[in-house]
């Protein structure tokens, strides 16, 4: 984060070109199945016109810098995909709420909860 004691000037957190930052990190991870599924859902739903890539970005931006620092990439993406699908009327919050509770009741791991 840049140290900026001045009042907010309109430059948003995600618009980071030119900010001071440390060395470029070299860690690399392989994508897990659930991350690939999030990626696939984004591509499929946007290609079918349920939302746009800019809609995806808009929600990611509005989630703020704290989400950028505390959630990983595909966690932020699924949160944004969900927000866009609800805004588009593809399903309701109530439908999601009930299904999430059902999912969690299946078991404590991703494999059990996703039914394999």
């Amino acid at each position: 984060m840049t140290q900026n004691p001045d009042p907010f000037d309109g430059k948003r957190w995600h618009d980071m070109g030119g900010d001071a930052a440390g060395p470029v990190p070299t860690d690399q991870h392989d994508f897990s199945l659930w991350e690939k599924r999030v990626d696939a859902l984004m591509v499929i739903c946007s290609s079918k016109g349920h939302f746009t890539v800019d809609g995806l970005r808009r929600v990611l931006e509005d989630m703020g810098p704290e989400a950028f620092e505390t959630m990983n990439y595909y966690e932020r993406w699924i949160a944004s995909v969900n927000q866009n699908l609800i805004e588009a009327g593809v399903y309701t919050t109530a439908e999601l709420a009930q299904r999430m509770t059902e999912v969690a009741a299946r078991g404590p791991t991703y494999g059990e909860a996703s039914g394999g």
């Binding site: 995909v81 969900n82 593809v90 999430m100 999912v103 078991g107 791991t109 996703s114």
Partner: peptide
């Protein structure tokens, strides 16, 4: 990455739910 054998996270729970709803509704 944490996956099948790791404790289910909130965001994974959401991904599973969204995927199932989208399949049931015929979106994909």
């Amino acid at each position: 990455r944490p996956d099948d054998d790791h404790p289910l996270t909130y965001w994974q729970q959401m991904e599973i739910a969204i995927r199932e709803i989208l399949i049931e509704k015929g979106v994909t």
